[in-house]
Amino acid sequence: MDFFKRQLPTLLVLVLGLGMIIQYYIPTTFSQQVLKNVNLWIQIIAAFTLCIGITSLLRTHYTKIRLQHSGWAYSIILYIVFIAMVILGFYRGIQEGTPFRWLFDYVQTPLSSTTFSLTAFFICSAAYRAFRARTMEATIMLIAAIIVMIGRIPFGDMLSAYLPSFIPGFNDMAGWIFNTPGMAARRAILLGISLGGIATSLRIILGIERSYQGKD
């Protein structure tokens, strides 16, 4: 039994991990097929697991309604909308022109666009609250941010037209900050991340890091 509980998952991770690495270097049709199937399998497993997720969501709100926790009426709304969406989706399909699409276009889309647009408000408040020149490092970050902000708007273009361009390549300061020091730092972060990712993958594949498995 212990084999199925512990060794089998670890073995599966090892075989699949190494298998998929080797697959990358083999160009045969079979190898392409393997990659395609593994991706498909992950998608199918995720689709099945979604049912568990949805059950979890519905159970949370069912408990709220049953125990009449504060705001339980909102949970009823959640239920109604969810059920409506599922029924419409399965009954009439999800193509253009169906009620499902209508709900998507006029309810989900404005909600997501509006929530996304909250970022602009929060960026402004964060800029005011946290952009303080407390240390030298913070000052450099602040200055870089201001230069880029000026540089990206037409106002900055007007400004730079009046600046002397005695140093070549500096007529677009904002662009330079991005393309040169900014890109260098990001590149190094990415290089570090890839090393970290590879090391983590290796630890997972070799079964050294197994905390994701839990215990019995």
């Binding site: 929060f122 964060a126 972060i189 570090g192 991340i193 970290g196 990712g197």
Partner: peptide, 27 residues
């Protein structure tokens, strides 16, 4: 986070931020 674009926001509004590779080194 390993999402380089989001790092500045976390740095500005969080108390501590693990940059890139530090996330992988944390465990």
């Amino acid at each position: 986070t390993d999402s380089t674009y989001q790092l500045p926001f976390f740095i500005v509004s969080c108390d501590y931020t693990l940059i890139g590779e530090e996330l992988y080194a944390a465990s």
